[in-house]
Structures are given as structure tokens and as C-alpha cells.
Simulated scan of single mutants.
Amino acid sequence: MSWLTRVRNAIASVTQKETAENLWHKCPSCGQMIFTKEFDENLSVCPSCEHHGRIGARKRFSQIFDGGQYTLLPPPRVPEDPLKFRDTKKYVDRIKAARTSTNEPDALLNARGSIVGHPAIVGVQDFAFMGGSMGVGVGEALVAGMRAAIDEHLPYIIFTAAGGARMQEGILSLMQMPRSTAAIAELKEAGLPYIVVLTDPTTGGVTASYAMLGDIQIAEPGALIGFAGQRVIEQTIREKLPEGFQRAEYLLEHGMIDMVVHRRELRETLGRVVDFVMPEQMAA
């Protein structure tokens, strides 16, 4: 054993202090550095500029349902790679990576719970799962959530967040647009409200289908909402678009949505809306 090894072994090892990996959160809007704990306590909203951060389904459920209590509806089982699609990666590998990073089966989850005393079925799209893209799994989950609402005579509330249809599923993903529209018709035939909360971003085929068919259209502040991207539109019409185009406030001003609601007020607002459209719920 060399003298260097003996000296090294004689020195007591110093254990590094364990620190949170994500102690700070940088706001993508204003660049402000915020303690992650403070950011979470503020419902993932920047305390400096009020930018509404993107959140996953379980966090959304805990914020919306009374006492953070809810029951997840079982996700539907669908073919995972119906077209055997491959680009730079196999589609199945992309799904596995998305499931590993989010710990969720797909981009849309449904849950049952109460909002200010009103029972409801709520669906939430997670943009972190392949951009919240609409594939067969999302379409099946959406239909399953609406049919559960019909069976239990409850309102269905959807929080949208998506880049559009899932290209790896081709025409099968596009078919979810008419399927979801038919399911909404079933919900309305049953006399039940369909409430949409548009979050950042809601674009593409999702906007062209179930995201804009609500009885009540709500959006979070600053949410990007549209079909085609702003640059594509400008190149097509050869004109500069106005400031704030495709943002929630612009859509409210032009009559495309009913209200823009801060995340802190969203649970109470949804409770009032459900109370207004389904007063018999509380009477029962």
C-alpha cells in the first residue's frame, strides 16, 4: 500500500449535504428565480408576474377537488402502436419514455370527486406526456370519462393542454376528433353540462374539436389557445397579427370564450358554475 493510499484512507470521509435537486424554479415568462416550495404553495403560479405554469393531472386534481380528495377512473386499454410507427425513434420507445418521466399511462386522466360540494367527473390533459397529444388513448379516456358522467348523472369538466393530434397514430388520432364530438352530443342529450377549462397551450386538433365545444368556456390567464401557429398564419395571410393574438385575454375580448379565471379562483368558480347549471344537485 502506497503512502498516498494510507493518507487518503486515514482522512474521515465527509458526507455531502443532501439538497433538493430542484430547489429553485425559474419563471419562463419573467425569468424570476422562485423557491420551488413557494412556487408549489402558490399553485405553480409565479408570484412576480402571475405566469401560470403547466401542471400535471394529479396536481390539478389535488387543487380542484375538495380537500384534494379524488378517485381516479381506470384508464382504458388501447393498442399502443397500431401503425408500428417509427421516425428517429420507435413510437413504443417514445411512449415508454413519456411514461417513465410522468409516471402516467397516457396524456389524459379522469377522476371523480367534489368541487365546492358538487360531485363531478374531471379530465385533465398533461402537456408533459408527449405534448398532451391526442391519440387513441386520449380519445378513449375522454369518451370513458363522459360516459361515466352520464352513468352517474354528473357534469364533465375537461382541462385541456395539447399540441394537437398525435402524429405517430396517423388517421387514428384524427378520428378522435369526431369520436369526442359524438361523446359530447351524448352528454348533452343526457342534459348534463360539459365545461372546458383551456390551459396553456391548447392547440391543433384538440382546439378544433372538444376544446371549443363546451357549454361554458373558461381559460387560465395568458393561456395560448389556437389551431395553427402564429407564424404559419402570418405567412399565409401575409399580415402581422395583433399583440396578444391567440392568448386567453384576446379570445375573451373577441367573444371566443366566456371567462378568464386565475388559478386561485378556479375551484370556487367551477363550483358556482356547476351550481348554476345543475341546481338540482344540491337540492338532492
Rank of each mutant, 00 (worst) to 15 (best):
M1D: 14
L4G: 09
R6T: 10
R6W: 09
V7H: 13
A10E: 11
T15V: 13
T19N: 13
T19P: 03
L23S: 15
H25I: 14
C27Y: 14
P28W: 12
P28G: 11
G31D: 05
Q32R: 10
I34F: 07
C46P: 05
S48C: 03
C49R: 12
H51A: 00
A57E: 13
R58G: 00
K59M: 09
F61E: 02
F61P: 01
S62L: 07
I64P: 00
F65W: 01
D66G: 02
L73W: 03
P75E: 06
P79W: 07
D81Y: 07
D81S: 10
F85G: 01
D87M: 11
D87Y: 15
T100I: 03
S101A: 14
T102Y: 10
T102G: 13
P105K: 05
P105M: 06
I121C: 05
G123P: 04
Q125G: 08
F127E: 01
F127M: 09
A128M: 12
M130C: 03
G131P: 00
G132V: 05
V138N: 12
G139K: 12
E140M: 12
A141S: 15
G145H: 02
G145V: 05
A148Y: 14
I150A: 03
H153V: 06
I157G: 06
I158Q: 08
F159N: 07
A161G: 09
A162S: 15
A162Q: 08
A165I: 03
R166Q: 08
M167A: 10
Q168S: 13
E169S: 04
L174T: 04
M177Q: 07
A182L: 04
A182M: 04
A185K: 00
P193M: 01
V196K: 04
D200G: 08
T203W: 15
T203K: 12
L213W: 01
P221A: 00
P221S: 02
A223F: 03
G226N: 06
E239H: 02
P242Y: 04
Q246T: 08
A248H: 12
L252K: 13
E253I: 02
E253Y: 04
G255E: 02
M256E: 12
M256L: 15
M259T: 15
H262Q: 14
R263D: 11
R264Y: 12
R267I: 12
T269W: 06
V273Y: 13
V274R: 10
V277L: 10
A284H: 09
